[in-house]
Design a protein around this nucleic acid. Structure first.
Lengths: 162, 162
DNA sequence: CGGATATATTTTAAGCTTGAAATATATTTT
DNA sequence: AAAATATATTTCAAGCTTAAAATATATCCG
């Protein structure tokens, strides 16, 4: 018998390959994330969740609903409430009442928050550039294309508007 | 002038490409992670951190030190303490004293923990297979190779022994 | 030996995270 | 309009997470 396990049971083998890929993807993301979190704390006394909220609001200058923030950051509604509370307490963002719907309010960067985020974001981009430094232009392109389809159903596949 | 922005300032443009890749990587990992966490909770009343500890101990049947667990899972030392405490309280793992060094103890799966984990792991592997279903054999291979170099310095690049 | 230094782990305080329940407001249905 | 249903958000309890301080044990070195 010279048949291989793969030939006999390709499905099971392939399932293991996907599992290994998941572990590698998870650890890669975790490695970068840990490094960024530590640097944000050390250099700017900033947490990653706070940074993420500021980044989302920086992209959407007109402001966002709590539920939009929650969806954009892929975290729970209740989670956003706490982070927004703290950022608002520090004066970096502000909730503004809406005329139409009194359940909701629009969250925006304050001018101070805008300046503050821009300053950090420039450094942050440099860190990412450094941490992903092992990837050249070709690899960055390949990875981006390959990872594209891996997203929640509800995210329509329109082009990014940034 | 027919020069492009890329030609004028390739460094800055490329830095943005790496940033976009990081965001895509982060969101991809987060999407899978969220889905797995929810299913583990719903189907097995199990949390992801607990599952990760059990998985690490399943691979290392001889047991691991707290610090080895911490490094393997890329979480802080103090974090591991709490999760191990709870799992030990449930009888799924056990700490055993060491003769040589009284600062440390070896953490192992109990027979019950072993059976319990094996049952969950089989289902878990199916979920990963489904969630990464958009990737065919070629893409899985490409992604695995591309992501390989992205890991902390201290992880030597020996082949996996699993 | 005995003090200094190093290593392994736990504890602590603060913040993050989740799912579920609670609250508040809007919209639909009868 | 009143009741029922739906939507948006907050609150809550439990667990996770981190960095820093504390504890406990080992090792080194004079």
């Amino acid at each position: 018998m010279v048949t291989t396990a793969t030939a006999l049971d390709p499905g099971e083998e392939f399932s293991k390959a996907r599992l290994r890929l998941w572990i590698r993807l998870y650890r890669a993301a975790r490695f970068i994330e840990t490094e960024l979190r530590e640097r944000l704390r050390r250099e700017f006394d900033m947490t990653l969740p706070r940074f993420d909220v500021l980044a989302a609001l920086y992209r959407q200058r007109d402001g966002m609903l709590m539920s939009e923030l929650s969806r954009a950051l892929m975290v729970s509604n209740g989670n956003v409430t706490g982070i927004v509370d703290r950022l608002a307490g520090e004066g970096l963002i502000a909730r503004t009442r809406r005329n139409g719907d009194r359940r909701t309010s629009i969250v925006r960067l304050t001018p101070e928050g805008f300046r503050y985020f821009r300053r950090i974001a420039a450094v942050h981009e440099g860190w990412v550039d450094e941490l992903l430094g092992v990837f050249g232009p070709r690899e960055v392109e390949q990875l981006s294309q390959l990872l594209k389809p891996l997203k929640p159903e509800h995210e329509t596949d329109r082009e990014d508007q940034t």
